[in-house]
Design a protein around this nucleic acid. Structure first.
Lengths: 243, 243
DNA sequence: GGCTCAAACTTGGTAAAACAACCTGTCGGC
DNA sequence: GCCGACAGGTTGTTTTACCAAGTTTGAGCC
């Protein structure tokens, strides 16, 4: 085993400076201590100080001006809020982290829309794993994973139990694929009678229908995640900076 | 005067390597030459090589693995594409760029949801500008801008004609506010009879209801944009990288 | 007083060196 | 054959050193 790995010095410096900015020790608009002052105070070399300040600049905490110094901007508004995109969580969270029930797990003909997202010919077969997620004792959403048959071989995706690791880790470990980005489509529709029954929702309220195609760096799709959310109980929220 | 300032060496290296990756000299999935090889080939020092490779890694061109090397990923698909996010386009595009008709423009009591997004007390009044956008001769979507009364003074937002500049430029020029980020909420519902009529859509198909709160760097909201999109004619699409 | 200019600060970039951590082979011994 | 030790490769981190370029300041001259 390993002893608690200590973070590198420059990362510690980043943390320290972030805390001081948040605490108001370095108010926004003011000048940060110069490189030499930081070298003195923390007893590290200049490259270490510069590395820390570079990280802070790239994250938007400070801005620098040659010849003058580095100005405090404050905590970057979205640095942390920037995460929970709709389709993303279902890929990275293990199924066992949420209650639920596996509805289907096996190969069958893909809907046209999924075929297009997976770059498969229409009417071809693919593997489907569909799960009803339960939150607070109530049915909450239906999550479906579609993947090409060759990708599903050798995985535990046919299991009727919740998977202990995330779909992403599962595929990455067993098939060696590398996820790169997600293309997400959001639409709304009236649920089918079956969907409404499973979700325990009135038939005349719409569902949000989210398709997330997971692709590698070259744009080749691996998996399509579909999430069905009753619109009376769920919203999608997202935040992003604008230039 | 100065001669054309030459870019720093590490930046030149970044460019060279990017071009080689794009040209296929370093195909995705393969190993990049090691630091020592690059030092040899380009006749620069190790910190210079490392600085260039750090930039490439942060931009998503390569990924590195201690003890093994650096793997080529390819051009980062989304780094520059930075899609038009749903609420964003309506802020930056001038109204005159799309056909349409101003439905309302004036002060009135805000709905609870908008009040919350604008940090206003419930039942207070705010300025509303609502417009029906027409595409290809068909009514397409309803766009509403809500803003606090003090922000609407001195603007042309009461005009019944399409504004020649974007809402963003308009407010930035006249009120000196600086937009920083957007918090977006997406939901779906059945349209009201009036909405369905204006949008020329069947009453039993849902609409996507997008709320985008535009805020400054400190999180204070300026404007709320609401877009109503018939779900049978519109989808929201978005792409983002995953770590 | 007002101007010029040099000195002293600031950040930006490059070079050379060393050690640590990690991976992958090869070469033993078993 | 199997397994461990080891050597040699890789990237990660830190240090020392020097030069370049932009900004501010103040001393000194007119």
């Amino acid at each position: 085993m390993s002893l608690e790995s200590v973070p590198p010095k420059y990362a510690q410096l980043v943390q320290t400076l972030q805390r001081r900015i948040e605490a108001g020790d370095y108010p926004p608009g003011t000048l940060l201590p110069s490189e030499n002052q930081l070298i003195q105070e923390f007893g590290v070399s200049r490259p270490t100080v510069v590395a820390a300040l570079r990280v802070l600049r790239e994250q938007g905490w400070i801005e620098s001006q040659q010849g003058k110094g580095r100005f405090v901007r404050g905590r970057p508004a979205l640095a942390l809020a920037e995460q929970p995109r709709p389709g993303h969580a279902y890929l990275t969270n293990p199924e066992s982290g949420s209650a639920g029930e596996v509805l289907e797990a096996g190969a069958l003909a893909v809907p046209n829309r999924v075929a297009a997202l997976l770059d498969l010919p229409a009417k071809s077969r693919a593997f489907l794993r569909r799960r009803l997620v339960v939150r607070d004792g109530e049915p909450s959403e239906i999550v479906s994973f579609w993947l090409p048959l060759e990708l599903s071989e050798g995985t535990d995706l046919t299991s009727a139990d919740a998977l202990p690791d995330s779909i992403r880790d599962h595929l990455q470990a067993r098939k060696g694929v590398r996820f790169d980005h997600i293309v997400e489509q959001i639409t709304a529709r009236i649920p089918s009678a079956d969907e409404a029954k499973r979700l325990g929702m009135p038939k005349n309220t719409p569902v949000l229908d989210v398709y997330a195609a997971v692709r590698d760096a070259s744009g080749h799709p691996f998996v399509v995640v579909n999430v069905l959310l009753p619109a009376d109980r769920h919203e999608l929220e997202d935040a992003y900076p604008i230039g």
